[in-house]
Design a protein around this nucleic acid. Structure first.
Lengths: 223, 223
DNA sequence: TTCATTCATTGATCCTGATCAAAGACTGAT
DNA sequence: ATCAGTCTTTGATCAGGATCAATGAATGAA
Protein backbone atom coordinates (compact mmCIF):
# COMPACT_ATOMS: atom_id res chain seq x y z
CA UNK A 1 0.00 0.00 0.00
CA UNK A 2 2.75 2.45 0.91
CA UNK A 3 5.47 3.58 -1.45
CA UNK A 4 9.15 3.77 -0.75
CA UNK A 5 10.97 6.97 -1.66
CA UNK A 6 14.55 8.08 -1.68
CA UNK A 7 15.85 11.61 -2.12
CA UNK A 8 19.21 13.31 -1.93
CA UNK A 9 19.98 16.73 -0.53
CA UNK A 10 17.95 19.49 -2.09
CA UNK A 11 15.59 17.19 -3.92
CA UNK A 12 11.89 16.88 -3.40
CA UNK A 13 10.37 13.73 -1.96
CA UNK A 14 7.80 13.14 -4.63
CA UNK A 15 4.29 12.68 -3.32
CA UNK A 16 0.96 11.98 -4.89
CA UNK A 17 -0.45 15.50 -4.73
CA UNK A 18 -4.01 14.45 -5.39
CA UNK A 19 -4.77 13.43 -1.84
CA UNK A 20 -3.46 13.96 1.70
CA UNK A 21 -0.31 11.96 2.33
CA UNK A 22 1.24 10.47 5.41
CA UNK A 23 5.00 10.21 5.25
CA UNK A 24 7.13 8.16 7.60
CA UNK A 25 10.65 9.45 7.53
CA UNK A 26 12.78 6.35 7.99
CA UNK A 27 16.04 8.20 7.69
CA UNK A 28 17.30 11.73 7.08
CA UNK A 29 16.01 15.25 7.58
CA UNK A 30 13.45 17.20 5.59
CA UNK A 31 11.75 20.56 5.37
CA UNK A 32 8.09 21.08 4.54
CA UNK A 33 7.89 24.11 2.29
CA UNK A 34 5.00 26.03 0.83
CA UNK A 35 5.62 27.98 -2.36
CA UNK A 36 3.61 31.17 -2.13
CA UNK A 37 1.99 32.68 -5.21
CA UNK A 38 4.30 35.70 -5.05
CA UNK A 39 7.28 33.43 -5.57
CA UNK A 40 8.55 33.49 -2.02
CA UNK A 41 8.54 30.39 0.11
CA UNK A 42 7.82 29.61 3.73
CA UNK A 43 9.27 26.68 5.65
CA UNK A 44 6.46 25.19 7.72
CA UNK A 45 8.43 22.55 9.59
CA UNK A 46 11.61 20.55 9.81
CA UNK A 47 11.55 16.79 10.33
CA UNK A 48 14.09 14.22 11.39
CA UNK A 49 14.57 10.47 11.39
CA UNK A 50 11.57 8.69 12.85
CA UNK A 51 9.12 11.54 12.34
CA UNK A 52 5.75 11.10 10.76
CA UNK A 53 4.67 13.97 8.52
CA UNK A 54 1.21 14.86 7.32
CA UNK A 55 1.21 16.58 3.94
CA UNK A 56 -2.30 17.76 3.18
CA UNK A 57 -3.65 18.19 -0.30
CA UNK A 58 -3.82 21.96 -0.72
CA UNK A 59 -5.36 23.10 -3.93
CA UNK A 60 -4.07 26.60 -4.49
CA UNK A 61 -0.54 26.43 -3.27
CA UNK A 62 2.39 24.17 -3.76
CA UNK A 63 3.48 22.13 -0.77
CA UNK A 64 6.79 20.31 -1.06
CA UNK A 65 8.67 17.94 1.18
CA UNK A 66 12.35 18.55 0.47
CA UNK A 67 15.30 16.46 1.61
CA UNK A 68 17.94 18.32 3.64
CA UNK A 69 20.27 15.33 3.38
CA UNK A 70 19.96 11.78 2.10
CA UNK A 71 16.49 10.55 2.98
CA UNK A 72 14.48 7.37 2.93
CA UNK A 73 10.76 7.53 3.47
CA UNK A 74 7.55 5.59 3.07
CA UNK A 75 4.44 7.40 1.94
CA UNK A 76 0.77 6.50 2.20
CA UNK A 77 -2.42 8.19 1.10
CA UNK A 78 -3.89 9.23 4.45
CA UNK A 79 -7.33 7.83 3.79
CA UNK A 80 -6.09 4.47 2.61
CA UNK A 81 -3.86 4.22 5.63
CA UNK A 82 -6.68 5.06 7.99
CA UNK A 83 -9.02 2.61 6.28
CA UNK A 84 -6.47 -0.11 6.85
CA UNK A 85 -6.10 0.92 10.48
CA UNK A 86 -9.82 0.95 11.10
CA UNK A 87 -9.73 -2.29 13.01
CA UNK A 88 -6.74 -1.23 15.06
CA UNK A 89 -7.82 1.40 17.56
CA UNK A 90 -4.40 1.53 19.14
CA UNK A 91 -2.86 2.49 15.80
CA UNK A 92 -5.39 5.26 15.37
CA UNK A 93 -4.82 6.39 18.90
CA UNK A 94 -1.08 6.53 18.44
CA UNK A 95 -1.53 8.56 15.30
CA UNK A 96 -3.92 10.90 17.03
CA UNK A 97 -1.40 11.43 19.80
CA UNK A 98 1.27 12.24 17.26
CA UNK A 99 -1.04 14.56 15.38
CA UNK A 100 -1.74 16.44 18.59
CA UNK A 101 2.00 16.65 19.24
CA UNK A 102 2.48 18.02 15.74
CA UNK A 103 -0.21 20.57 16.51
CA UNK A 104 1.67 21.60 19.63
CA UNK A 105 4.87 22.04 17.65
CA UNK A 106 3.08 24.09 15.06
CA UNK A 107 1.60 26.28 17.77
CA UNK A 108 5.05 26.74 19.22
CA UNK A 109 6.16 27.86 15.82
CA UNK A 110 3.30 30.35 15.76
CA UNK A 111 4.49 31.68 19.11
CA UNK A 112 8.00 32.05 17.72
CA UNK A 113 6.76 33.88 14.66
CA UNK A 114 4.33 36.09 16.53
CA UNK A 115 7.08 37.12 18.89
CA UNK A 116 8.67 40.15 17.37
CA UNK A 117 12.36 40.13 18.23
CA UNK A 118 14.70 38.32 15.86
CA UNK A 119 16.92 37.38 18.78
CA UNK A 120 14.10 35.58 20.58
CA UNK A 121 13.22 33.60 17.50
CA UNK A 122 16.78 32.48 16.89
CA UNK A 123 17.43 31.52 20.50
CA UNK A 124 14.15 29.63 20.63
CA UNK A 125 14.96 27.89 17.37
CA UNK A 126 18.34 26.74 18.65
CA UNK A 127 16.81 25.38 21.84
CA UNK A 128 14.13 23.57 19.85
CA UNK A 129 16.79 22.01 17.62
CA UNK A 130 18.82 21.06 20.67
CA UNK A 131 15.89 19.10 21.99
CA UNK A 132 15.37 17.29 18.73
CA UNK A 133 18.84 16.63 17.37
CA UNK A 134 21.21 17.92 20.03
CA UNK A 135 24.00 15.72 21.33
CA UNK A 136 25.57 16.28 24.75
CA UNK A 137 29.23 17.24 24.33
CA UNK A 138 30.86 17.91 27.65
CA UNK A 139 28.90 20.71 29.24
CA UNK A 140 27.71 21.87 25.82
CA UNK A 141 25.11 20.57 23.47
CA UNK A 142 26.31 20.07 19.94
CA UNK A 143 23.96 20.44 17.00
CA UNK A 144 24.72 19.52 13.43
CA UNK A 145 22.22 21.66 11.55
CA UNK A 146 21.18 20.06 8.29
CA UNK A 147 19.48 23.20 7.05
CA UNK A 148 21.01 26.37 5.58
CA UNK A 149 20.77 29.86 7.02
CA UNK A 150 18.25 30.57 4.31
CA UNK A 151 16.06 27.69 5.48
CA UNK A 152 16.29 28.91 9.04
CA UNK A 153 15.33 32.40 7.92
CA UNK A 154 12.42 31.13 5.83
CA UNK A 155 11.26 29.13 8.80
CA UNK A 156 11.42 32.06 11.23
CA UNK A 157 10.24 34.85 8.97
CA UNK A 158 13.68 36.46 8.88
CA UNK A 159 16.22 37.15 6.17
CA UNK A 160 19.44 35.26 5.81
CA UNK A 161 21.38 38.37 6.85
CA UNK A 162 19.43 38.78 10.06
CA UNK A 163 19.95 35.13 10.93
CA UNK A 164 23.66 35.54 10.36
CA UNK A 165 23.86 38.70 12.47
CA UNK A 166 22.02 37.02 15.32
CA UNK A 167 24.38 34.05 15.20
CA UNK A 168 27.29 36.46 15.31
CA UNK A 169 25.86 38.24 18.30
CA UNK A 170 25.24 35.00 20.18
CA UNK A 171 28.80 33.98 19.37
CA UNK A 172 30.18 37.34 20.57
CA UNK A 173 28.33 36.94 23.85
CA UNK A 174 29.73 33.43 24.24
CA UNK A 175 26.40 31.70 24.28
CA UNK A 176 27.25 29.57 21.28
CA UNK A 177 30.21 28.53 19.20
CA UNK A 178 30.12 27.54 15.56
CA UNK A 179 32.29 25.66 13.13
CA UNK A 180 31.73 25.59 9.42
CA UNK A 181 28.21 26.05 8.21
CA UNK A 182 26.43 23.43 10.19
CA UNK A 183 28.06 22.79 13.57
CA UNK A 184 26.81 24.73 16.57
CA UNK A 185 27.63 24.28 20.23
CA UNK A 186 25.23 25.66 22.77
CA UNK A 187 27.28 26.95 25.68
CA UNK A 188 24.74 28.57 27.90
CA UNK A 189 21.31 26.99 27.81
CA UNK A 190 20.03 29.20 30.56
CA UNK A 191 21.20 32.34 28.84
CA UNK A 192 19.61 31.18 25.60
CA UNK A 193 16.36 30.45 27.41
CA UNK A 194 16.38 34.00 28.72
CA UNK A 195 17.02 35.41 25.24
CA UNK A 196 14.29 33.16 23.90
CA UNK A 197 11.86 34.75 26.32
CA UNK A 198 11.42 31.53 28.24
CA UNK A 199 12.66 33.12 31.45
CA UNK A 200 10.19 31.43 33.74
CA UNK A 201 11.05 27.80 33.09
CA UNK A 202 11.29 25.42 30.17
CA UNK A 203 15.01 25.03 30.07
CA UNK A 204 16.50 22.31 27.95
CA UNK A 205 17.55 19.44 30.11
CA UNK A 206 20.60 17.72 28.65
CA UNK A 207 18.98 14.41 29.55
CA UNK A 208 16.15 15.26 27.22
CA UNK A 209 18.29 15.49 24.15
CA UNK A 210 17.76 13.46 21.06
CA UNK A 211 20.21 10.77 22.08
CA UNK A 212 18.30 9.83 25.17
CA UNK A 213 14.97 10.36 23.49
CA UNK A 214 15.85 7.84 20.86
CA UNK A 215 15.75 5.11 23.42
CA UNK A 216 12.08 5.73 23.83
CA UNK A 217 11.77 4.88 20.14
CA UNK A 218 8.61 6.87 19.85
CA UNK A 219 8.53 8.57 16.48
CA UNK A 220 6.79 11.87 16.43
CA UNK A 221 4.72 13.63 13.89
CA UNK A 222 5.79 17.12 13.23
CA UNK A 223 4.01 20.06 11.78
CA UNK B 1 -16.88 11.77 32.33
CA UNK B 2 -16.93 15.16 30.62
CA UNK B 3 -17.69 18.39 32.38
CA UNK B 4 -20.02 21.08 31.25
CA UNK B 5 -18.74 24.65 31.30
CA UNK B 6 -20.26 28.03 30.74
CA UNK B 7 -18.41 31.31 30.34
CA UNK B 8 -19.37 34.86 29.47
CA UNK B 9 -17.41 37.30 27.37
CA UNK B 10 -13.90 37.86 28.56
CA UNK B 11 -13.90 35.03 31.05
CA UNK B 12 -11.74 31.97 30.99
CA UNK B 13 -13.22 28.56 30.37
CA UNK B 14 -11.75 26.84 33.37
CA UNK B 15 -9.89 23.65 32.56
CA UNK B 16 -8.11 21.05 34.57
CA UNK B 17 -4.56 22.19 33.89
CA UNK B 18 -2.95 19.01 35.14
CA UNK B 19 -3.51 17.05 31.92
CA UNK B 20 -4.27 17.64 28.26
CA UNK B 21 -7.87 18.60 27.71
CA UNK B 22 -10.24 18.16 24.81
CA UNK B 23 -12.91 20.83 24.58
CA UNK B 24 -16.00 20.61 22.43
CA UNK B 25 -17.38 24.08 21.90
CA UNK B 26 -21.14 23.59 21.83
CA UNK B 27 -21.88 27.24 21.41
CA UNK B 28 -20.02 30.52 21.20
CA UNK B 29 -16.56 31.71 20.18
CA UNK B 30 -13.25 31.45 22.00
CA UNK B 31 -9.60 32.36 21.72
CA UNK B 32 -6.74 30.13 22.80
CA UNK B 33 -4.13 32.38 24.41
CA UNK B 34 -0.67 31.75 25.73
CA UNK B 35 0.69 34.10 28.37
CA UNK B 36 4.37 34.56 27.69
CA UNK B 37 6.84 34.92 30.55
CA UNK B 38 7.57 38.53 29.55
CA UNK B 39 3.96 39.44 30.21
CA UNK B 40 2.85 39.69 26.61
CA UNK B 41 0.35 37.28 25.19
CA UNK B 42 -0.08 35.49 21.90
CA UNK B 43 -3.40 34.33 20.48
CA UNK B 44 -2.85 30.85 19.07
CA UNK B 45 -6.25 30.24 17.56
CA UNK B 46 -9.87 31.31 17.41
CA UNK B 47 -12.69 28.78 17.65
CA UNK B 48 -16.37 28.81 16.86
CA UNK B 49 -19.50 26.77 17.54
CA UNK B 50 -18.92 23.10 16.81
CA UNK B 51 -15.13 23.23 16.97
CA UNK B 52 -13.02 20.75 18.87
CA UNK B 53 -10.11 22.32 20.74
CA UNK B 54 -7.08 20.55 22.10
CA UNK B 55 -5.53 22.33 25.08
CA UNK B 56 -2.28 20.60 25.93
CA UNK B 57 -0.77 20.62 29.37
CA UNK B 58 2.22 22.92 29.00
CA UNK B 59 4.38 23.13 32.02
CA UNK B 60 6.18 26.41 31.71
CA UNK B 61 3.63 28.71 30.25
CA UNK B 62 0.05 29.56 30.88
CA UNK B 63 -2.46 28.48 28.26
CA UNK B 64 -5.98 29.86 28.54
CA UNK B 65 -9.19 29.30 26.66
CA UNK B 66 -11.10 32.57 26.84
CA UNK B 67 -14.71 33.19 25.83
CA UNK B 68 -15.23 35.92 23.21
CA UNK B 69 -18.96 35.81 23.80
CA UNK B 70 -21.32 33.60 25.77
CA UNK B 71 -20.02 30.06 25.51
CA UNK B 72 -21.10 26.57 26.38
CA UNK B 73 -18.57 23.78 26.21
CA UNK B 74 -17.89 20.25 27.32
CA UNK B 75 -14.40 19.35 28.44
CA UNK B 76 -12.68 15.98 28.77
CA UNK B 77 -9.25 14.88 29.87
CA UNK B 78 -7.78 13.75 26.56
CA UNK B 79 -6.58 10.40 27.82
CA UNK B 80 -9.82 9.49 29.52
CA UNK B 81 -11.75 10.40 26.41
CA UNK B 82 -9.49 8.32 24.21
CA UNK B 83 -9.71 5.37 26.58
CA UNK B 84 -13.47 5.51 26.35
CA UNK B 85 -13.28 5.73 22.56
CA UNK B 86 -10.95 2.78 22.27
CA UNK B 87 -13.69 0.51 21.02
CA UNK B 88 -14.99 3.08 18.56
CA UNK B 89 -12.58 3.43 15.66
CA UNK B 90 -14.92 5.83 13.93
CA UNK B 91 -14.76 8.25 16.82
CA UNK B 92 -11.00 8.08 16.85
CA UNK B 93 -10.84 8.56 13.14
CA UNK B 94 -13.11 11.58 13.27
CA UNK B 95 -10.96 13.08 15.97
CA UNK B 96 -7.82 12.38 14.01
CA UNK B 97 -9.32 14.11 11.01
CA UNK B 98 -10.15 17.10 13.16
CA UNK B 99 -6.70 17.15 14.67
CA UNK B 100 -5.17 17.15 11.20
CA UNK B 101 -7.49 19.98 10.24
CA UNK B 102 -6.37 21.93 13.29
CA UNK B 103 -2.79 21.23 12.25
CA UNK B 104 -3.50 22.62 8.81
CA UNK B 105 -5.01 25.73 10.33
CA UNK B 106 -2.05 26.18 12.59
CA UNK B 107 0.31 25.84 9.64
CA UNK B 108 -1.72 28.41 7.78
CA UNK B 109 -1.31 30.68 10.74
CA UNK B 110 2.43 30.13 10.53
CA UNK B 111 2.29 31.15 6.89
CA UNK B 112 0.42 34.30 7.82
CA UNK B 113 2.90 35.16 10.54
CA UNK B 114 5.95 34.37 8.47
CA UNK B 115 4.69 36.54 5.68
CA UNK B 116 6.02 39.98 6.30
CA UNK B 117 3.45 42.53 5.12
CA UNK B 118 0.78 43.61 7.60
CA UNK B 119 -1.67 44.06 4.76
CA UNK B 120 -1.33 40.47 3.66
CA UNK B 121 -1.95 39.20 7.16
CA UNK B 122 -5.06 41.29 7.62
CA UNK B 123 -6.54 40.43 4.23
CA UNK B 124 -5.82 36.77 4.80
CA UNK B 125 -7.37 36.93 8.25
CA UNK B 126 -10.56 38.49 6.91
CA UNK B 127 -10.88 35.82 4.22
CA UNK B 128 -10.32 33.11 6.80
CA UNK B 129 -13.01 34.56 9.06
CA UNK B 130 -15.34 34.86 6.08
CA UNK B 131 -15.02 31.16 5.47
CA UNK B 132 -15.71 30.27 9.06
CA UNK B 133 -18.35 32.73 10.18
CA UNK B 134 -19.17 34.78 7.09
CA UNK B 135 -22.79 35.23 6.00
CA UNK B 136 -23.70 36.05 2.40
CA UNK B 137 -25.34 39.46 2.24
CA UNK B 138 -26.21 40.40 -1.31
CA UNK B 139 -22.94 40.38 -3.23
CA UNK B 140 -21.00 40.94 -0.01
CA UNK B 141 -20.03 38.65 2.80
CA UNK B 142 -20.88 39.95 6.22
CA UNK B 143 -18.81 39.03 9.25
CA UNK B 144 -19.65 39.74 12.84
CA UNK B 145 -16.24 39.63 14.47
CA UNK B 146 -16.44 38.50 18.08
CA UNK B 147 -12.85 39.48 18.82
CA UNK B 148 -11.33 42.89 19.46
CA UNK B 149 -8.70 44.63 17.37
CA UNK B 150 -6.28 43.75 20.12
CA UNK B 151 -7.10 40.05 19.77
CA UNK B 152 -6.65 40.28 16.03
CA UNK B 153 -3.32 41.99 16.50
CA UNK B 154 -2.17 39.45 19.07
CA UNK B 155 -3.16 36.71 16.69
CA UNK B 156 -1.31 38.18 13.73
CA UNK B 157 1.77 39.52 15.46
CA UNK B 158 0.73 43.13 14.90
CA UNK B 159 -0.17 46.02 17.16
CA UNK B 160 -3.68 47.30 17.57
CA UNK B 161 -2.74 50.49 15.75
CA UNK B 162 -1.44 48.65 12.73
CA UNK B 163 -4.58 46.55 12.57
CA UNK B 164 -6.66 49.67 12.69
CA UNK B 165 -4.65 51.40 9.97
CA UNK B 166 -4.95 48.38 7.70
CA UNK B 167 -8.70 48.28 8.19
CA UNK B 168 -8.82 51.95 7.32
CA UNK B 169 -6.82 51.40 4.18
CA UNK B 170 -9.00 48.49 3.05
CA UNK B 171 -12.02 50.67 3.69
CA UNK B 172 -10.55 53.56 1.70
CA UNK B 173 -9.92 51.25 -1.22
CA UNK B 174 -13.50 50.02 -1.04
CA UNK B 175 -12.61 46.41 -0.38
CA UNK B 176 -14.48 46.34 2.89
CA UNK B 177 -17.02 48.35 4.84
CA UNK B 178 -17.38 48.42 8.59
CA UNK B 179 -20.00 49.35 11.12
CA UNK B 180 -19.35 49.65 14.80
CA UNK B 181 -16.57 47.57 16.23
CA UNK B 182 -17.56 44.17 15.01
CA UNK B 183 -19.40 44.28 11.70
CA UNK B 184 -17.41 43.95 8.50
CA UNK B 185 -18.62 43.54 4.96
CA UNK B 186 -16.22 42.05 2.44
CA UNK B 187 -16.90 43.74 -0.84
CA UNK B 188 -14.21 42.42 -3.10
CA UNK B 189 -13.10 38.86 -2.35
CA UNK B 190 -10.86 38.73 -5.36
CA UNK B 191 -9.12 41.94 -4.44
CA UNK B 192 -8.66 40.73 -0.89
CA UNK B 193 -7.22 37.46 -2.15
CA UNK B 194 -4.68 39.45 -4.15
CA UNK B 195 -3.76 41.56 -1.12
CA UNK B 196 -3.56 38.38 0.94
CA UNK B 197 -0.98 37.07 -1.48
CA UNK B 198 -3.12 34.04 -2.25
CA UNK B 199 -3.22 35.01 -5.88
CA UNK B 200 -0.41 36.45 -7.91
CA UNK B 201 -1.13 40.10 -8.61
CA UNK B 202 -1.68 41.37 -12.19
CA UNK B 203 0.52 40.48 -15.12
CA UNK B 204 0.05 36.74 -14.88
CA UNK B 205 -0.51 34.31 -17.72
CA UNK B 206 -4.18 33.85 -18.47
CA UNK B 207 -3.75 30.22 -17.50
CA UNK B 208 -2.84 31.01 -13.94
CA UNK B 209 -5.65 33.55 -13.74
CA UNK B 210 -8.27 30.94 -14.46
CA UNK B 211 -6.77 28.66 -11.87
CA UNK B 212 -6.68 31.46 -9.34
CA UNK B 213 -10.34 32.21 -9.75
CA UNK B 214 -11.21 28.62 -9.13
CA UNK B 215 -9.05 28.60 -6.03
CA UNK B 216 -11.06 31.35 -4.43
CA UNK B 217 -13.70 28.75 -3.72
CA UNK B 218 -11.37 26.33 -2.00
CA UNK B 219 -11.21 26.01 1.75
CA UNK B 220 -8.41 27.77 3.53
CA UNK B 221 -6.74 29.24 6.46
CA UNK B 222 -7.94 29.76 9.89
CA UNK B 223 -5.92 29.73 13.02
C1' DT C 1 45.83 20.43 -4.78
C1' DT C 2 43.21 24.21 -7.26
C1' DC C 3 39.26 26.28 -8.85
C1' DA C 4 34.37 27.44 -9.15
C1' DT C 5 30.24 27.89 -7.01
C1' DT C 6 27.44 28.39 -3.43
C1' DC C 7 26.76 29.98 1.16
C1' DA C 8 27.74 33.08 5.05
C1' DT C 9 29.24 37.32 7.00
C1' DT C 10 29.64 42.29 7.35
C1' DG C 11 28.51 47.09 6.17
C1' DA C 12 25.34 51.07 4.72
C1' DT C 13 20.89 52.73 3.93
C1' DC C 14 15.88 52.60 3.78
C1' DC C 15 11.20 51.47 5.11
C1' DT C 16 7.57 49.19 7.58
C1' DG C 17 5.45 48.74 11.61
C1' DA C 18 6.22 49.70 16.74
C1' DT C 19 5.85 53.12 20.07
C1' DC C 20 4.25 57.33 22.16
C1' DA C 21 0.45 60.51 22.35
C1' DA C 22 -4.12 62.33 21.86
C1' DA C 23 -8.68 62.61 20.18
C1' DG C 24 -12.92 60.32 18.82
C1' DA C 25 -16.48 56.53 18.86
C1' DC C 26 -18.87 52.75 20.80
C1' DT C 27 -20.97 50.04 24.64
C1' DG C 28 -23.17 49.08 28.84
C1' DA C 29 -24.86 50.73 33.07
C1' DT C 30 -27.32 54.10 35.57
C1' DA D 1 -31.21 59.73 27.71
C1' DT D 2 -26.54 60.55 29.92
C1' DC D 3 -22.19 59.28 31.49
C1' DA D 4 -17.96 56.55 32.30
C1' DG D 5 -14.98 53.49 30.74
C1' DT D 6 -13.16 51.02 27.12
C1' DC D 7 -12.00 50.40 22.46
C1' DT D 8 -10.69 52.42 18.07
C1' DT D 9 -8.80 55.69 15.05
C1' DT D 10 -5.39 58.99 13.66
C1' DG D 11 -0.94 61.45 13.94
C1' DA D 12 4.23 61.92 14.80
C1' DT D 13 8.45 59.85 15.70
C1' DC D 14 11.62 56.02 16.22
C1' DA D 15 13.88 51.54 15.71
C1' DG D 16 14.53 46.88 14.09
C1' DG D 17 15.02 44.32 10.41
C1' DA D 18 14.83 44.30 5.18
C1' DT D 19 17.28 45.49 1.28
C1' DC D 20 21.23 46.57 -1.48
C1' DA D 21 26.09 45.75 -1.97
C1' DA D 22 30.48 43.64 -1.39
C1' DT D 23 33.77 40.66 0.81
C1' DG D 24 35.05 36.29 2.83
C1' DA D 25 34.63 31.25 3.93
C1' DA D 26 33.29 26.45 2.95
C1' DT D 27 32.22 22.68 -0.04
C1' DG D 28 32.58 19.66 -4.00
C1' DA D 29 34.55 18.53 -8.35
C1' DA D 30 38.41 18.21 -11.50
Amino acid sequence: MGEFRRATRGHEIVLDSRTDQLVFLADGATKLVVQLPDGSEQVLAFHFTGDMVHVPHRPGDRLQLVALDDCRAITFPTNAFLDAAEGEPEVLRTMLTRALLALQRSRNKAIRLGRKAAQERIADFLLAMAERIGIPDGTDIRIDLPMSRRDIGNSLGLTIETVSRQFTELRDSHMIATSGRSLVWLHDLEGLAVRAGQVAAQKVDPENCAISNKDLASPTMVG
